[in-house]
Design a binder for these strands. Structure first.
Lengths: 261, 261
DNA sequence: GCAATCGGTTCACTATTCAAACCGACGCTT
DNA sequence: AAGCGTCGGTTTGAATAGTGAACCGATTGC
């Protein structure tokens, strides 16, 4: 593993620690030598990727990623890219489809497209989606590194309905099922009478950035429908990912003064 | 300069290039060897900080900074941190105060707090603030690296009123004045009858992240008032910066015995 | 078909990183 | 107040990783 990878892993690890962390703690968490961790932190700090608090001497994530993230979002906005695919999916399955995004350690709904049916599921933009109680959460966590999965499983599992997965073992089994299928299903996990199917939208590096989820009334969703929704969601997720990361979007050809020295 | 610094500089440089860039172009821009630039890009890509487009082979900034930036914003939100200071400033000067933030290459208004006076200036959240035509823009650009300043000066300078600075020379002079004063002034640059004073909110690394701006009707703002507003804005900007980046950032108290670059 | 340039690779040379011991400071217990 | 554990931070030479000039094959323009 190269130096840069290690430094970025440190940054990642630091971002996952809630609040600030001390040098020794960081070094331990990243499995780095204290001296090395310190040098990394100093270099990262120079560029604003981490900050050190003067009095406590602790480190926390800096504001540089905010700046870079905004530039990225301004050039290649996730929502605008994904929207047409969400609409297409609604037309295909005629059920409410919502798009979620991982934000500050939490998965939340960023866009909802309703089905045309009178009897349909309503989802509010901004809804937080627990990993264990929603199809979106399941799809998301199932694509995360093993460490995150374990953390999610061992966290307290709040119950929302009589059907919420509150048992770590069944949560784990659902994750495994999701990984095998390529999509997740949550039967009344968050709200009674609703069955949701979801697939994670992945970066080229296979990190999940969000989910595309179909929410249908229980009465309309037999096993066949659920599978159909799952496959449709997975296929849409892949297409969003391609559009967002892969396929050349050719935003604008750089005017580019005559270089060629 | 260490490997990590070089890699982060590359990331920074890439973020400043609008659209995608090729390997050779990036290497040249960062003054790195092609081989080195490539290794950096590969490592950065592994962590999602850059992406390579499959067919054009070009690189662009990735989605990892978005994720990190969101975590940072969730833990230490700029707006929530700055708001009380904005309110305090309104009480102090009793004129409309607005807070702007640099977002994806543009400066825009993110919050407005009105004065209690009936005759006051109205500013809409979301307003884009051109560098040459607003106090906010002037304050912001004046705290940027020289290269950005030159780029702003040589960009086309759109006229909004009869008083807008459309001449590069006077624009440059205003920037120099701003740097000398620690605050900026725009007399009717964007809208007739309004005089604004602004100060940039800086990171510990002296990068501007946004501005705090006082907008007053021209009739109420004599030279003394303008100076008073300028100093109040500068002082508030500093306090926001302190609150946001660590209430206690001073010169290192640690004996930095070894001066590693 | 030549020249220039592209993205990407190789490999001898060299700068960085590692690990462990160390320092002074702080906080706790006795 | 002495003893202990831990903190952030530093030093050391041996081990390891990064570096960059030259190179490769593929495109592109003339």
């Amino acid at each position: 593993m190269g130096t840069i990878s290690k430094a970025l892993t440190l940054l990642d690890t630091l971002s996952l620690m809630q609040s600030e962390a001390g040098l020794t703690e960081i070094a331990k968490a990243c499995d780095l030598d204290k001296a090395t961790a310190r040098r990394f932190l100093v270099e990262l700090e120079k560029h604003g990727f981490v900050e050190q608090l003067a009095e406590s001497r602790k480190y926390r994530i800096g504001s540089a990623p905010v700046r870079l993230g905004r530039i990225r979002e301004a050039c290649y906005p996730f929502l605008r890219t994904a929207m047409p695919f969400v609409k297409r999916l609604v037309e295909e399955v005629d059920e409410t489809v919502h798009l979620s995004e991982f934000t500050g350690g939490r998965l939340s709904t960023v866009h909802v497209e309703d089905s045309t049916k009178a009897h349909r599921v309503f989802v509010a933009v901004g809804t937080l989606l627990p990993f264990h109680a929603t199809a979106s959460g399941l799809a998301f966590i199932s694509s995360c590194p093993a460490a995150d999965i374990e953390a999610a499983i061992s966290a307290p599992l709040q119950s929302y309905t009589d059907y919420t997965l509150t048992d770590p073992a069944s949560f784990r089994q659902s994750i495994e099922q999701t990984q095998a299928d390529g999509y997740s299903v949550s039967r009344q996990g968050l709200e009674a009478g609703v069955i949701s199917t979801s697939a994670a939208i992945l970066t080229p590096g296979a990190r999940p950035v969000g989910c595309i989820t179909i929410a249908a009334p229980l009465v309309r969703a037999d096993a066949g429908k659920v599978r159909e929704h799952g496959l449709a969601a997975a296929s849409t997720a892949r297409r969003i990912s391609d559009a967002f990361f892969g396929a050349d979007r050719q935003v604008r050809t750089v005017p580019q003064s005559r270089r060629t020295n």
